[in-house]
Design a protein around this nucleic acid. Sequence first.
DNA 1: GCACTGAGTAAACCTACTTGACTCACATGT
DNA 2: ACATGTGAGTCAAGTAGGTTTACTCAGTGC
Lengths: 155, 155
Amino acid sequence: MCQDVGMLDDLELVFLLGHGYNALLGEFVRRLDAAGYGDLRPAHGFVFQALWGPGKTASELAEHLGVTKQAAGQLVDELERRGYVKRVAHPAGGRRRLVVLTEAAERHLRVAGETLHQLERELAEAIPLGELREGLVTLVRTLSGDHLPPLRPIW
Amino acid sequence: MCQDVGMLDDLELVFLLGHGYNALLGEFVRRLDAAGYGDLRPAHGFVFQALWGPGKTASELAEHLGVTKQAAGQLVDELERRGYVKRVAHPAGGRRRLVVLTEAAERHLRVAGETLHQLERELAEAIPLGELREGLVTLVRTLSGDHLPPLRPIW
DNA sequence: GCACTGAGTAAACCTACTTGACTCACATGT
DNA sequence: ACATGTGAGTCAAGTAGGTTTACTCAGTGC
């Protein structure tokens, strides 16, 4: 189930990036788990980020996440049932309903943000994060042009 | 479905890493697709890398990939049906069967390797890849200790 | 009024796994 | 010699997280 880390230097850049993402996201999820958020996956965090502030309709959320509106609707159903979001009347009327965050979700966003910043502070002791970020930003700009595709697993 | 790339500098490191991985893997897959390998996903590439050389039993493959032996068996079934691997007698006998690559799979590995190296050459014109790799290696070593967990989506 | 558009929803299906239960070839202790 | 265990492989059913297809229904624009 595990490979030795000795091979890291010979690894192709894509897979090195993948392991970095995997490791950092994994540690983030473990810390959130330890903070009592074991029931929320990264996908839920993306929903919270997308809904932060004014909220979105389920269809807007779907487009933002790069999934069908049915899939977005299911996510919202689940998060509503668990008290993290609620559907309120949409100012523009129609069949539209605005999905907005509850206090519980905003609290989670704050905890997640603090967790990430703490993690980043720890990593900054061993890694020149400025260089790393700059390289990554250039890479993404080079490959993605003007628009970022949604962050979803390619498998 | 898309976000503006302007926000990249403010993005948390995890998500920046995620977008980098997404973008590079996406471009890799697109090029392999264009080269006639539209039927092979990255997961198949991992199988090929794991089996390269002497091959592995389905159970060893499962452990390497971090999935159950049933899942590994299904992957092998599919790849065998499509002519990329074959099961041969295992020297150690028992119920063991060694899964090894066919010529088609080795050809794919070569094309994939060349594709990655070409991509990396192109990126090297805009990005100091040495710095980037070094930062990533340190990050993975710091977070994963001595052993790399298998590369799978955390979602 | 009446057709059109777009949000939301319902149901069936699909893919890539998992868990659980089993078979079978060989190794091992008595 | 023989029972018993161990580990590889397989069969079947269940699950998570989506998709496609088909529909309802509120407001819009002639």
